[in-house]
Every structure is written in structure tokens, then in C-alpha cells.
Design a protein around this nucleic acid. Structure first.
Length: 473
DNA sequence: AAAAAAC
């Protein structure tokens, strides 16, 4: 029996929770739902993966009135993927009710969205830019918005969405319920909350440290040029079923994806310069376990809820502790365990210490396997495959030849040879990645006698163009 | 400095 009953959750939502296999309310859910039901404004501090979406989703769904011409609730999220994810989860929760959520975001033809909006979804889940676009076109009307939710508030702040949010909030009816959710609560964000909310109830879900206990954190001290080889070695050693590898830049992600693919890994990249269609497809395939490795920028660091991510790799040390915490939090979700590896160059060791200090968690040194250990691991993996498939494989013809072999050699020798032939030997992987942040040296690199001579002046003093075209910023 | 986000 669902433990959501004590919160008087709508029968049809209970049914959906049941079907989704959700029985026990999480901390944030049991704290938010009662207040939200009473129309209180809420400031909720909680990591992602704590069941936040259902916490605000359930009471919001319950409040939606039937047969209205305009949307009654909206959720703002910092990335497109997040908007899609939140809309999907709300729709699951409301599957037995006549309440629909629609994701609205950029990079997708607006006509299609306008058409979908004509079906009068009750709940809009959007990224700010496209939402404002619809606002101006009046294809989304705000006069009946009674519930407004800001998700991942701190990230919105980081990404400079605050002005957008202010623009949107100024157009909203003042009679409404507002909820703000964020992993951290910097002062600037608190101020926004105070400005746009009415006597909000603060709710903080205490997670002991900043990172979850179900995540093992390890580091590898490695020179820049050896990262790729180290990554391939670790991938061979740990055989992740499903891993996210974070790179620092979009270009980095592209190069790393290519390098891993050419080394035989099922890898796909994800970053903000890719076409939205491709982004969605990659994420979908990753969720379906059709891709082993997702190589991503920080676009995937926040909030993305993919179950069954066994490993996270910080191929490049993240910019700050917050980003570290979010990246690492993509694994060890839903009660499962996970391992997070962070590559640290000798120069960066100090930064790692700072992360340890802030998260109050030790990051343990990962020992790199020897060549022999790696070779052995390869055989073990092959052996595992044998055990997995031995029951349901047709071995008829193979058995005949096996019998002949056993007449000449002992079983162990034959089997060892078979393992060797069917296992790829580990090899040193050559670094093909462009060095990170070239740190443009100021010294002119005297290359007069190499390359073709440049035509006299080198464009340095071109007439200043900065006042042409669009004006300020 | 990079990332994300509207056309």
C-alpha cells in the first residue's frame, strides 16, 4: 500500500505512483507536499535525484482545473534535456488524470510547439528563451498561471537567466503560488526568492555531505597527454555498463568521442552545439542502454536522471566544487552504488584537495592496473561471456572440432588458447586529443623561416569593427 | 574561461 496516502494524494495519482513502483515518499516529498497543498510559497533546497519533481509535480497536478483555455502551471528549467525530463515525469504522474504537461524549448520548430499548445496543456515545462518567445507571440498566455516553479535555481543564476526570469515574472499574475528549488542557496538567489515570493516556507533536505554515500570517489593522477590512455585502461579494468564521461569543452567532447569510438567503445557525445534532434536521440539511446559511454559537457551535469549509470569520469577536472558534486551525482542514484573517477594533472592536485575539503569526503587514489592485470581482466570478461551464453548457444558443430582437439591437448591448454584468441589484448592508446587551453603565450613564436610567409601586415590593426552591426552586447 | 539558452 502506498505511503503517499497519508498526504491525501489524489486517487489517480496514487494509482500512477503504484504503477511507477514508487511506494515510499522521499524526504523532500513528505516535506513539500503538505505545504504545497496549502498553496504556500516554497523555497526548497535539495539535490537532484531526491524526488524533487514529484514533490512539486504531485500537488501541482492536483490543483489543475478542467477545461481551461490557458495553461495553469509552469516550470522553468535551465537546460532543454531537463525540461523534457520534467515534463515526461509529470505526464507519468498524471497518466490517469486529464492533466497534460508540455515541454517547450529552443532548437525545435516553433510551429510544432504552437500546434501542441492549441491542445491546451495545463502545465508548461520550459527553458526561458523559448518561453519568452511564446510569451511575446501570445501563443502562451499567462493570465491563468496559478502555480510557478523555478527548478535548479542556482544553475539558472549561473547561466545568466536571471534577467529572463525577471521579465517572465513581471508578466505573471500576482495571485499565484511560487516554488523555487535549488541545490545550493546563494544570497543572490535568496533575494530573488524574497522579491517574487510571498512569505515562503523554507525546506531543506539535509544530506549529510554534499555528495551521496552511495558514490565511491576516486582520483587518478595523470599527465594531460596520458589521459586518453588512462581512460581506456580504466574502462577495460572496470567494464562500466553505463558511464558518463565529462569533458571541459564542446570540442573536447567531440574529440574524445571520436577517439573512444575508434578504440571500439560504443560512445556518443552530448553538448550544446549539437542539433537538438541529435541531442534528444543520443540521450534516449543512452537511457535505453544502447550506448555504453556518454561523453558530455556540463550540459549533462545537472539534474539529468538516468538510472543505472555505474560510473562517472571527470576526464577534465570540473571548474568548481559545485559542478563536481553535480557531475558525480549522475551515478549512485536510486539506491544503487556508483564510482566516480576524477582525472587530476599534477598541477591540479591542489584543486582536488579543495574539493575534498568542501565536500567533506575523501577522494581515494585509484591504482592503475599493470599490463598483466589488464590482460587477465580481458580473459575474465570473455569467460563471463562464455558463462552467460553457454546455456543457449548451439554448439553442435563446434563440439565435434572440440572433441578432436581434446584428443591432442589437455582441456586447460585448449581453453586457455581459445580465451586468448577471442580476447583483444590491451594496448597503449595513443593520445590524439588537442591539448587543453593553449594558454596563448605572449611571446611571438619566431616562425619566420617556416610556413608560408604571411602577406605583410597580419590583420592586427584592421579598422575597428566593434561599432558596426548590432549595438551593445 | 566555458558552458547553457531564442530566432
Amino acid at each position: 500500500m502506498s505511503n503517499f496516502k497519508e498526504f491525501m494524494v489524489d486517487e489517480k495519482i496514487l494509482h500512477a505512483l503504484d504503477k511507477m513502483g514508487i511506494v515510499e515518499p522521499t524526504d523532500i516529498q513528505s516535506q513539500v507536499i503538505p505545504h504545497a497543498k496549502l498553496d504556500r510559497d516554497i523555497i526548497g533546497q535539495a539535490q537532484t535525484g531526491t524526488g524533487k519533481t514529484a514533490a512539486f509535480g504531485i500537488p501541482t497536478i492536483e490543483k489543475m482545473l478542467p477545461d481551461r483555455k490557458h495553461p495553469q502551471a509552469m516550470v522553468l528549467a535551465p537546460t532543454r534535456e531537463l525540461a523534457i525530463q520534467v515534463a515526461t515525469e509529470i505526464n507519468r504522474l498524471s497518466q490517469f488524470k486529464k492533466v497534460n504537461a508540455l515541454a517547450i524549448y529552443g532548437g525545435e520548430p516553433i510551429d510544432r510547439q504552437i500546434k501542441a499548445l492549441k491542445r491546451n496543456p495545463e502545465i508548461i515545462v520550459a527553458t526561458p528563451g523559448r518561453f519568452m518567445d511564446h510569451m511575446r507571440r501570445k501563443t502562451i498566455r499567462l493570465e491563468e498561471m496559478s502555480v510557478v516553479i523555478l527548478d535548479e535555481g542556482d544553475e539558472m543564476l549561473n547561466m545568466g537567466f536571471i534577467e529572463d526570469i525577471e521579465t517572465i515574472f513581471k508578466e505573471l499574475p500576482t495571485e499565484r503560488q511560487t516554488m523555487l528549488f535549488s541545490a545550493t542557496m546563494p544570497n543572490r538567489l535568496k533575494k530573488i526568492g524574497e522579491r517574487f515570493m510571498n512569505n515562503p516556507q523554507s525546506i531543506a533536505v539535509k544530506s549529510q555531505g554534499m555528495t551521496v554515500d552511495t558514490i565511491e570517489q576516486r582520483y587518478v593522477k595523470v599527465k594531460e597527454a596520458e589521459k586518453l590512455n588512462a581512460l581506456c585502461t580504466l574502462l577495460t579494468k572496470h567494464q562500466p555498463e553505463s558511464a558518463i564521461i565529462f569533458g571541459r569543452t564542446k570540442r573536447r567532447v567531440d574529440e574524445l568521442t571520436e577517439a573512444l569510438r575508434s578504440n571500439g567503445f560504443k560512445a556518443e557525445g552530448l553538448h550544446g552545439d549539437m542539433r537538438q534532434e541529435k541531442r534528444s536521440k543520443v540521450l534516449q539511446r543512452f537511457r535505453q542502454n544502447k550506448i555504453e559511454l556518454l561523453i558530455a559537457t556540463d550540459v549533462a551535469a545537472r539534474g539529468l536522471d538516468v538510472t543505472g549509470v555505474t560510473h562517472v569520469f571527470n576526464f577534465d577536472l570540473p571548474q568548481d566544487t559545485e559542478s563536481y558534486v553535480h557531475r558525480v551525482g549522475r551515478t549512485g542514484r536510486a539506491g544503487k552504488t556508483g564510482i566516480a573517477f576524477t582525472f587530476v594533472t599534477p598541477k591540479e592536485m591542489e584543486l582536488l584537495a579543495r574539493i575534498e575539503e568542501k565536500t567533506k569526503k575523501e577522494v581515494v587514489k585509484e591504482s592503475m592496473p599493470s599490463f598483466d592485470q589488464l590482460t587477465k581482466k580481458g580473459f575474465e570478461v570473455t569467460a563471463e561471456k562464455i558463462v552467460d551464453q553457454i546455456e543457449d548457444t548451439d554448439l553442435l558443430e563446434a563440439r565435434k572440432v572440440a572433441k578432436e582437439l581434446l584428443e591432442r591437448y589437455d582441456a586447460e591448454t585448449v581453453l586457455a588458447m581459445a580465451l586468448k584468441l577471442s580476447t583483444k589484448a590491451p594496448k597503449e592508446v595513443e593520445n590524439v586529443l588537442t591539448a587543453e587551453s593553449p594558454m596563448r603565450s605572449k611571446k611571438p613564436q619566431n616562425r619566420n623561416n617556416s610556413k608560408k610567409g604571411r602577406p605583410s601586415h597580419r590583420g592586427g590593426r584592421r579598422s575597428s569593427r566593434k561599432n558596426y552591426g548590432k549595438g551593445s552586447n
